[in-house]
Design a protein around this nucleic acid. Structure first.
Lengths: 341, 341
DNA sequence: AGTTAGCACTCATAGCAGTAGAGTGCTAAC
DNA sequence: GTTAGCACTCTACTGCTATGAGTGCTAACT
């Protein structure tokens, strides 16, 4: 059967109405909200066709119709257009991002908070894990007589720091030696090459100096482990409490899933920019939710993702418009931050 | 009316049974669980007395009894004893704390995660805000040709860092000047003295050099603002989803309250080590919850709090025992970290 | 051929007894 | 002071009915 323009319009209107009300849409209210006038009987015939095409579901015989996952898919792929952010919204988003704009480490936190704030849903951001980035350099800062901080800087602009303690007095000279030794053997190497084995090799090649550096080496390995970890930030999980479709077991399933960042990370990284409606994600915990994923690029290279998790019934055009803008802002900001270096 | 030993024992047993079942306790099951044998009629008389004393509530006429807030209060103040952690539990807690033990910045995060992990409730930790701590020193690290990181170290052992960008090439000499100027005017001063006004004064006193330092000054002020902010970490909020008493509106109220860290911070800081049962906290969002607060000390001085939020029906002796141990561990670890410096 | 009015049919929901069972409070005996 | 016995209360559950929203179908209309 063919999806005539009138059927398209009806599907769109059902999705619009269902998005705001959350209730199945009946033929009567539907034909009151159409921008052309036909009787409810005609609308019923069309709805019956759309249901036969698998675009609408019916909770039970005497209920109205609800868009099916497939219906949403057609709507998103063919019918809707992203709604670009207005200048006001742009200013609003920029203002929310500003406080974290100067620190790559904090930026993705700020983005998650911003995204959760403007969408009132759960927001997730990821940065590329160290598995793809390189070591830009290692820095040392003395923090007290016998403690110092090692800072690992990566090519993606992120920094990881750790404090370590030595059983001897540190001097600027010693730290300069640390700096030279560490940067000579590490700068330019992929972060993933800092393995315990490599650390041992480094230690071995230093001879006696290794004893002095053991705590620094251990601290460095800690930062590398952190850098290798998938970097996932979330915010606004509690926003999901306010959607009637997220209830009890359903909600618990979702929250439990979100508490395993590695899995979330993998889902987002391999997805590409797209919308997962309900069961499309293949994650059973998310079967009643939608996940909108948008990759952002730094220097033209795919660098990470921002994503929003919410009920299937959400305002996709608006959300996708906002996320498009936010993703480009983040990419631009990170590119600037890296170019500064 | 007097709280005879038998009444005490009955109250304790009711609380024990109610803690595991969550159901009102009737006279029949109660007398099966008492360690002395009396008939259910006797128990009924005693329960009736306890209800008259305000220690038990009755949801409705034909239901069993439930401990009242006042009943819990008496139980906690007079009847129960904290259950010290077993050596196994001690090892378990230590193992959970270990990964974050070496970085004061991350320790309180780790403590919140640990506490949520062992209690299966929501955990909160606070550190003293910068309003009471002093500036131990300021450090600068070059991160690229034109960017550097300023690190504010406080007397409480916490560090706050921010990256800043200059429109000229940075050299080690310039950073040494920064270091000298900043430490001369700031070291030893309370963190709260770094106000925008003071920053301006600093700039003014530098003459031309102020132009070079403006971005560093701005970054410093950012770190100071962060250091002044109440430092509240939470974890395990989603654990609350699994308690039947936290439902719908109730749960949303609590989550909404937890999303305002400043209020939570104030509640914990002014409370002292204690248990707030239901409405005792004075926070209406927490009227159906209990909050167990424990202060920890660093170098013998009150330094911050750890707290657990959960249903009123919780295992207080066990929880308080665990928290006593955890608070002393945290205090000890922070004291060590500070003494190292 | 497409559209519409009319009507029978379906099904969820709310409301209303009636019943079973848990638990109490009271009384009288021990 | 303790206990057995019993009437009383109240909730939770079940089955029933009425209601109404909404559909699907048919026949008439344009």
């Amino acid at each position: 059967m063919e999806l005539t323009p009138r059927k398209q319009k009806i599907l769109e209107t059902i999705i619009d109405l269902y998005t705001v009300s959350g209730e199945p849409v009946g033929s009567k209210v539907l034909c009151e909200n159409l921008d052309f006038s036909v009787s409810s009987a005609t609308v019923r015939n069309e709805m019956s066709d759309l249901a036969a095409m698998g675009l609408l579901d019916q909770p039970h015989t005497s209920a109205g119709r609800v868009p099916s996952e497939h219906g949403y898919r057609i709507y998103i792929d063919e019918l809707m257009k992203p709604l670009p952010v207005t200048p006001e919204e742009r200013h609003f988003i920029d203002a929310l991002l500003l406080p974290s704009a100067y620190d790559p480490e904090k930026l993705l936190d700020g983005v998650a908070r911003t995204l959760a704030g403007i969408t009132h849903m759960a927001a997730i951001t990821t940065t590329p894990s160290g598995s793809v980035s390189k070591i830009a350099g290692v820095q040392f800062v003395q923090t007290s007589r016998r403690t110092a901080m090692v800072i690992l800087m990566t090519s993606s602009g992120t920094m990881y720091s750790r404090v370590f303690h030595c059983n001897f007095e540190l001097t600027p000279e010693i730290l300069r030696v640390f700096f030279r030794v560490f940067n000579e053997s590490l700068a330019g190497k992929p972060v993933r090459s800092i393995t315990p084995a490599y650390i041992q090799t480094m230690g071995a090649s230093m001879g006696e100096a290794a004893l002095l550096m053991s705590s620094a080496l251990a601290a460095l390995q800690d930062t590398a482990r952190e850098a290798m970890g998938s970097d996932v930030r979330m915010d606004g999980q509690t926003n999901l409490l306010f959607f009637p479709e997220f209830h009890e077991a359903n909600l618990r399933r979702i929250m439990r899933y979100l508490s395993r960042p590695q899995e979330v990370y993998q889902l987002l990284e391999r997805a590409g920019s797209r919308v997962y409606i309900g069961r499309e994600s293949g994650v059973s915990a998310l079967r009643d939710a939608s996940l909108v994923i948008k990759h952002y690029a730094v220097r033209g290279q795919d660098a990470g993702t921002i994503a929003v998790l919410g009920p299937v019934r959400m305002n996709y055009p608006k959300l996708i418009g906002s996320m498009d803008y936010l993703a480009s802002s983040v990419g631009r900001m990170l590119t600037e931050l890296i170019n500064l270096q």
